[in-house]
Amino acid sequence: MKKLAQIAIAIFFTFLSASAQDSPYQKAMKKEIAKLIESDSLSALQQSANAFGRIAELNPNEWQPAYYQSLAYTFQGLDKSLSIDKKDEVLAKADKLAQKADALSKNNAEIVALQGFVLMAKLNADAASRGQSLSGPVLQTFGKARAMDPKNPRALALTAQMEYGMARFFGSGTEKACGYAKESLAIFASQDEQALKAALSPTWGKALAEKMAKTCQ
């Protein structure tokens, strides 16, 4: 009888832990986020964008699927093998998805930083002719993200990259850019990555911050 009770309790706990486990949404998101970070080819990025698109369809009120789908397209838009037309096509998609995420989650620094990232990718697609008209809006969007969350490491790392490029172009000092890179790196180091991952929050960008910090040395 005692044994039976033990079994019952065990079963109860099994159930309990099972219900504390991830929902299908979280499970799918975690799997796809991990995949996206590993993606190193256009086709892998497209698969990733498709997967987030499927998740978004089932979870229309969550901002993260649209965010990551947009991110997957933005990464494609930075691929050097694509023509300007093709880059513009995927970045237009990325832009639309970032807007969708923004509509679902207002005043979200992560999403505003992503919007800046999409703009920056657009600039990079044809820097010679878009540099002058887009550098202002890119910096302004990153500035907006930093104002919403001064500790957002992605907004800081992306600002560092943009400022660095502009400083080189104008032949001025890179101190400001490097300051942002250092700040970003420190925040990345202090963050609990596992907790963020569990909350499906963005964790990417550390490599960029490291690269920028290294360039600054």
């Binding site: 299908p24 086709s43 497209q46 698969q47 964008a49 498709n50 997967a51 698109g53 499927r54 998740i55």
Partner: peptide, 19 residues
């Protein structure tokens, strides 16, 4: 057409086309 998103509506079942 590579990279096509193919899925069953209302489920997580889906895939992308190969090159």
């Amino acid at each position: 057409i590579p990279g096509v998103n193919i899925y069953l509506k209302g489920t997580y079942d889906g895939t992308s086309s190969d090159p």
